[in-house]
Amino acid sequence: MVDGLRAYALITGMWVRSTLAYRASFAMTVVANFAVTALDFVAIMIMFGHVDALGGFAMAEVAFLYGTTSAAFGLADLLLGSMNGVGQRVRDGTLDVLLVRPVPVFLQVAADRFALRRLGRVSQALLVLGWSLVQLDAASWSAGQWLMVPMMVLSGTAIYGALYAGGAAFQFWAQDAAEVQNSFTYGGNTLLQYPPTVFGAELVRGVTFVVPLAFVNWVPALRVLGRDDPLGLPGWVDFASPAVALVCCAGAGLAWRAGLRGYRSTGS
């Protein structure tokens, strides 16, 4: 594991160095990335130019949801986003090259083509989150409320990361199915930018119990914002995000191992 993390750091470091060799080009792409990932927040602002509340939530509250989920998603995308390419590697056989190196394949795949420009989304999300905290008068919040914010972002990063890893594992069987992963990662991020009250109860139940995206922000955020939980779950569930994240990561780890084992026995 330590070996693997060291390898991850080495490989990402290599990519970072190669991008930084062209500083101007890099700065441009980060800025552009920052601006362009902000466009989906601009869409939300336009919506609120026409209405005062969406599903009963005000602009600042939606911004809070947006900021928490996008920061978590952005971090997961930065750290593990490259795993989306594993299907391609299986197809063209280049995964074999990684398998003969003395470091775990998982982290080699994760570090592949590490793109620092993805920081653009993270910083944009944190900016929106900061703005929402000001608007929501977070200065008057309790320490508990404050603590829940980093908890959401970190647990959310782990949950999205698990989805990336699980999706990558799925590609061992269906190499062309990279896009299914987008439904859960990008789709999940889009979903969680809006309040749960906008969606049908089945959908909310689905992303709570089946694909536990709701624990990225909905469940804990409703507590922070002092809102009622549409599913009426017991109160302690609001603090369950780290545990849920842990379970997700364990599940993804098992899926990855199974996928790799399958690949090594079929060599598809």
Binding site: A174, E179, N182, Y194
Partner: peptide, 23 residues
């Protein structure tokens, strides 16, 4: 498989956006 995966993704996004538009 890629086509099926794409249809799935489009449908998921369709539902998400449709609900926000309803609201």
């Amino acid at each position: 498989v890629a086509t099926l995966a794409g249809v799935f993704t489009n449908t998921v996004f369709g539902f998400i956006l449709a609900y926000t538009f309803v609201a």
